[in-house]
Every structure is written in C-alpha cells, then in structure tokens.
C-alpha cells in the first residue's frame, strides 16, 4: 500500500513537471503557426525592416521596423538610467550601508518591485509626462524619454537585488586580502569586488533589460503610441508589446493584421529568449 502511494505521488510530480514543458511547447507552436502565416503576404525582410506599419490600410503595410526601434530606444534609455544607478545602489547596500539602513533599503526595493506596472504607468502619466512636456517645451510629454524613465524604475529592483546578491557572494577573503594590502574601501570595491562579481552583475543587467523589453502596460500609457520611425528620445514611439496589446482586440481573427501581431509576438519571444540565455550564461559561467 505504501509503495503504491509512493508510486502515485511520484507519477503526479512527474506529470506536473512534464505539464509545464508541454504548455510551453504548445504555446510556442501556436505562436509559430499563427505568426508564420504572415509571411505568405509579406517577406520576412519586408516585415522586419519595412518602415510603415499601416495594418488596416488596403493593401496593408506590415513593416515593424519602427516598432522594433521604438522598443529598442525605450529599452536603451531605461538601461542608461537604471544600470548605473542600480549597480551603485547594489554596491551601497552590499558594502557601505550600515545594517539597519541596509534592511530598510532592501525592503523598499522589494516594495518597488511589487508595484503593478499599470500603477507606475498611471503615476507616470499624471506626473512625469507633464514635466517632460514643460521641461523640454514639447507639444506632448508622451515620449520615448518618459517611457524610459518609468521603465528604469521597473528594471531597478531586478538589477539591484541580483547585483547585490552577486556582490554579497564574493568571498570575504577577497575583501580582506585587498584591505590587508593597504587598499582603501573604494579601491577594494572597484578593483576586487566588482570584477569578482562581474558575471552576476552582467546577468542582473540582462534580466533588468529583459523585464523592460517585455513590459507593456506602462509603455502603452506613456510613450504616445505613434508607430513612426523614431528620431530622438523626445518624440512619441510605439513598442512591440504595446502594438500587440493595443491592436489585438480589434484585429479580425484570420486577417493579415492578426497574423502580423502574432509574428510580432515571435520577434519579442526571440529577443527575450536571447536576453535570458545571455543572462544565464553569465550567471553560470565558471571561473
């Protein structure tokens, strides 16, 4: 009887494990099936590098280059803001802060991660967007820059907590060795601790960026959603994610537009997958 129970439990656990793999494969296949259909109408090169996204004109123009650039621009901006601040924050928490400050900071960063993106988007819309508009004297504050700033807030918790972990797990003996040679605290940090933690910090950055590029709600609310070729941070852009979210509701099932949105999904999937794999490589790189 006991053996039988063990057997059942073992198989149930196995089934749960297989289920997650199964679902991933099914989702992926569905995405491929629906997305690849668009290439009957448009060549992959024209799809990826076409400059016009007019999915419901006749005939539809399905070039997603402006959307890819929109996503990259917003992500790049967010990375430029969040990476230096995030790493500096991680260094402060891991190395400089007194125990009490450290606890408070760590808790508040977790709290930052817990804010739903739609709330961040909303706050951005009523505070950041008007500021950007008046500071740069623009016709609208719904710009790539606003999106980048808001997304930087979303990337920061990931970057800080993973980078802090990486710094924390540098063996204490490295630090002692450097200090015992007469290095100052700062010299120890940037000559020993940061290089020793570099793979973990790179992984933190990649995961932070991965979070930004997949983010939808906040960017949709504050980047202005104009599917135009972006030329600067100070104009409205539209990202890949926002396009899917905004248009899927009105696309006719089985239309070119519908298939094109799925194909955008494939592009996003490939980008996120590449970022996660890179992060993984850094995290597990053996020294």
């Amino acid at each position: 009887m006991r053996k039988f129970k063990e057997y059942i439990i073992e198989k149930l656990i196995l089934a749960s494990g297989l289920a997650s793999i199964f679902f991933v494969i099914v989702i992926f296949l569905f995405l491929l099936k629906e997305g690849l259909a668009v290439f009957k109408i448009v060549t992959p090169a024209n799809f990826l590098f076409g400059k016009n996204w007019y999915p419901i004109s006749e005939p539809p123009q399905l070039g997603i280059f402006p959307l890819i650039l929109g996503s990259l621009l917003v992500t790049l901006g967010a990375a430029i803001i969040s990476v230096p601040i995030g790493i500096a924050c991680a260094v402060y928490i891991a190395e400089v802060a007194p125990v009490r400050t450290k606890e408070i900071l760590k808790a508040s960063i977790e709290l930052l991660a817990a804010i739903p993106s739609v709330v961040l988007g909303f706050i951005g819309m009523v505070t950041l967007v008007p500021w950007v508009k008046s500071i740069f004297k623009l016709p609208t504050g719904l710009t790539a820059l606003s999106g980048s700033i808001m997304l930087a807030f979303m990337a920061m918790p990931t970057i800080v907590s993973i980078a802090e972990d990486a710094l924390y797990s540098v063996p204490r003996s490295h630090k002692e060795g450097a200090l015992a040679l007469g290095a100052t605290h700062w010299q120890t940090i940037y000559r020993v601790l940061l290089p020793a933690a570099s793979s973990g910090i790179l992984a933190a950055v990649m995961l932070g960026i991965g979070r930004v590029i997949g983010e939808t709600m906040a960017v949709m609310m504050i980047t202005g959603n104009a599917a135009l070729m972006p030329h600067s941070f100070l104009q409205p852009v539209r990202t890949l994610t926002a396009t899917i979210a905004a248009e899927m509701g009105e696309a006719v099932v089985g239309s070119e537009h519908y298939f094109a949105l799925f194909a955008i999904g494939i592009v996003l999937f490939v980008i996120s997958f590449a970022i996660n794999i890179t992060a993984d490589l850094f995290l597990h790189r053996k020294r």
Binding site: H174, G177, V192, P195, A196
Partner: peptide, 8 residues
C-alpha cells in the same frame, strides 16, 4: 591568510 586568497 589561512586560505590562499588570490584575487580573481
């Protein structure tokens, strides 16, 4: 030190 601690 007790454990050799070269830097990485």
């Amino acid at each position: 030190f007790q454990r050799p601690n070269p830097f990485p």
